[in-house]
Design a protein around this nucleic acid. Sequence first.
DNA 1: TTATGTGCAAAGATTTTGCACAAGT
DNA 2: ACTTGTGCAAAATCTTTGCACATAA
Lengths: 150, 150
Amino acid sequence: MSTTNELASRQVESHGHRLTEPRRAVLDAIVVAGGAFTVEELCAAVPAVGRATVFRTVKLLQESGVICRLSLDDGSVRYQLSHGGHHHHLICNACGAVDEFRDSDLDALIDRNARDHGFDVSSHSIELYGRCRDCAATALPGETASVVRV
Amino acid sequence: MSTTNELASRQVESHGHRLTEPRRAVLDAIVVAGGAFTVEELCAAVPAVGRATVFRTVKLLQESGVICRLSLDDGSVRYQLSHGGHHHHLICNACGAVDEFRDSDLDALIDRNARDHGFDVSSHSIELYGRCRDCAATALPGETASVVRV
DNA sequence: TTATGTGCAAAGATTTTGCACAAGT
DNA sequence: ACTTGTGCAAAATCTTTGCACATAA
């Protein structure tokens, strides 16, 4: 935890922001959360820090690349500690767990599609929704992993 | 326009929903909008229809697959007429235009990644952000299309 | 006729802002 | 010191809900 925290702290400072007490507290709460969280949950976890500051800190951390925004299946928004650079998400609809993955072939294919459309891509986001390994294991025997496109 | 509208209407009815006057009005406004829109814009376009009904209709159309939700780069939400089945989006940050594309290789690669992680995918969403063909053409000569990952 | 849908206004939920005060460097 | 950040409470958004009335099939 302290390692993650130090990394994040440095990242905040390198973006020209002060490392204040409230920000440390929010950062700690995020690390403790251990997974995806809402601003609401953060506020509850750090009651000493004002609501507005939590929102401001979340935005700041997002811009510093410390956390990333998750768009859930149902349209709700959550955030999560970013475990590195460019990546995509595997979001479990059952337990809420969020895993990351990266695949340069996938990224290359994305770029090709963009090029084919004369589109100048600056970024992209990919989110997979379904059930994580653990939740899939809990599935009934007959329930084969089927792919239903939306 | 009438064609699009009839298709959508049928789609609404096939989902067991009545085709009411307010719903027709909202549908018309969506077709007239011609691109991505917000609920707010719809409300303004169809002042005769109550705000709540516009929200309810948008949700209904979304569930019927008539329109799809777009998560913009900045986190804001827009909707757009869906031009068919499974597809992905090319969202222009400059003019707001939204194009669609589909690529089965891409989808296959997505599925492979999921499998590699023991993840049971039920759906996925891919959004590319950048500049559309037209806006890219407006770019300054020196500005080569560079790919900056987020 | 009768299940569905609608409008309105109020309630919720979520996020931002203004401003006086506090704190980091 | 002096810039940057914070707390609070109010405001601005955005979305949903309760309920009496209207309407499509």
